[in-house]
C-alpha cells in the first residue's frame, strides 16, 4: 500500500465532488451511458467517487439501434465487471409504435429520435437526475450550460434563464416533474479526456483506434460503408481506408477520420496536433449554426 501524499488533479477532484453531490441531493439518479469515451470516463470517475462501495445508481443506454457493434459488446462487458444495473431503452420501439417518424434520405439519422425515448424513460423510472458526459468545449451552445441544468416536464432547457452557479455550490432543488441534467466533466477538453484514459489505462471500444474499414466519401467526410444503416448512393465509391472514430454516436451521423493512431499514446498525440474539432465529424451539428441549442431546448442531451 502506498503511504505517500496525494494531490488529486483539479478536474478529477471537481468531477468526483459533483458525483457525490448528485447522490446526496437526488433520490433517483441515473448515468446516461452511450458507450463512448466520455461516458466511459464518467463511469471510472463514479467508481472513484464511491469506492469501496459500488456505483450507487444504474446506467441507462438509449439505443438508437444504429450503434457500432463494438460499442454494444464493450458496454455489456463493462456492466458485468462493475456489477451495476443497466437499463436499455430502444428508439426502435417508438418507431415501431408510430410515436416517432424515422427520417429518410441521404442525411437520415436517428440522433434526434433519441430525445423522445430518453424523456419516456425518465418518466417511466422517475429519474430526477440524469448524469451525462457532455463537455463545454464540444460546441458553443454547450459552452453555456451549467453543471446542474434544470429541465421541465418536456425536457426543455431554458437557456436564457439559467440558475446562477457560484463557487462550487450546486443547487439541486427542483419541483416534482422537473429533472436535472448533470455534467461532471463540463470543464474537461477532448484532450483532457484522452489523457485521462491514457493515464488511468481505461479500456475503450476498438473503433476509437485506427483500423481498416470500407468507406466512402461525401461532402468531404468519410463514412462507413460496412453498415447498412448509413445511406449511400450507387455512385459513391467504396474504398478501404485506415480510419478511426473520434466520437461514437449513431453510426448514421458519425463520420470517420483518416488516422494511423493504433494505440492510446498515438491517439493522444493526434488529438494534440489536430486542426479539426471533435464535432467537425458530426453531421447533426452541421445542419445549422443553432442545431445543438435547438436540440437541447427540445430535451436532447
Amino acid at each position: 500500500m502506498s503511504k505517500e501524499t496525494i494531490q488529486v488533479d483539479a478536474l478529477e477532484s471537481e468531477a468526483i465532488f459533483i458525483f457525490r453531490e448528485v447522490v446526496a441531493q437526488f433520490e433517483k439518479p441515473v448515468l446516461l451511458f452511450s458507450g463512448g469515451k466520455d461516458s466511459i470516463t464518467l463511469v471510472r470517475l463514479a467508481q472513484k467517487a464511491f469506492y469501496p462501495a459500488k456505483i450507487p445508481f444504474p446506467l441507462m443506454h438509449i439505443d438508437t439501434g444504429h450503434n457500432f457493434p463494438e460499442t454494444i459488446e464493450f458496454r455489456d462487458r463493462l456492466v458485468e465487471e462493475l456489477g451495476v444495473e443497466l437499463i436499455v431503452r430502444n428508439v426502435q420501439d417508438n418507431i415501431d409504435s408510430g410515436r416517432v417518424k424515422e427520417e429518410t434520405g441521404r442525411y437520415a439519422s436517428r440522433n434526434m429520435l433519441q430525445t423522445e425515448t430518453l424523456l419516456d424513460a425518465i418518466e417511466e423510472f422517475g429519474f430526477d437526475a440524469c448524469i451525462g458526459g457532455a463537455r463545454r468545449d464540444e460546441e458553443k451552445a454547450r459552452a453555456k450550460e451549467r453543471i446542474f441544468s434544470v429541465r421541465d416536464d418536456f425536457g426543455q432547457w431554458d437557456e436564457k434563464n439559467q440558475r446562477p452557479e457560484v463557487f462550487d455550490m450546486l443547487n439541486g432543488r427542483i419541483d416534482l416533474g422537473q429533472n436535472v441534467r448533470v455534467f461532471p466533466i463540463s470543464n474537461w477538453t477532448e484532450l483532457d479526456v484522452w489523457s485521462y484514459i491514457e493515464q488511468e489505462e481505461i479500456e475503450i471500444p476498438s473503433i476509437y483506434f485506427a483500423h481498416k474499414r470500407k468507406t466512402f466519401v461525401r461532402d468531404g467526410m468519410i463514412w462507413s460503408a460496412d453498415d447498412a444503416v448509413v445511406y449511400r448512393d450507387e455512385e459513391e465509391e467504396v474504398v478501404e481506408r485506415m480510419v478511426r472514430f473520434r466520437t461514437v454516436g449513431d453510426m448514421s451521423c458519425t463520420a470517420a477520420v483518416l488516422s494511423d493512431a493504433v494505440d492510446i499514446v498515438k491517439v493522444v498525440e493526434e488529438i494534440r496536433d489536430s486542426s479539426i474539432s471533435e464535432r467537425g465529424a458530426r453531421i447533426d451539428d452541421k445542419r445549422s449554426e443553432a442545431a445543438m441549442e435547438k436540440r437541447k431546448q427540445q430535451g436532447y442531451f
Binding site: K3, E4, T5, Q7, E14, I16, R20
Partner: peptide, 10 residues
C-alpha cells in the same frame, strides 16, 4: 491509501 492529502483533493 495515503499518508497525507493536499487541499483541493476529493
Amino acid at each position: 491509501e495515503y499518508q497525507k492529502a493536499k487541499r483541493g483533493s476529493s
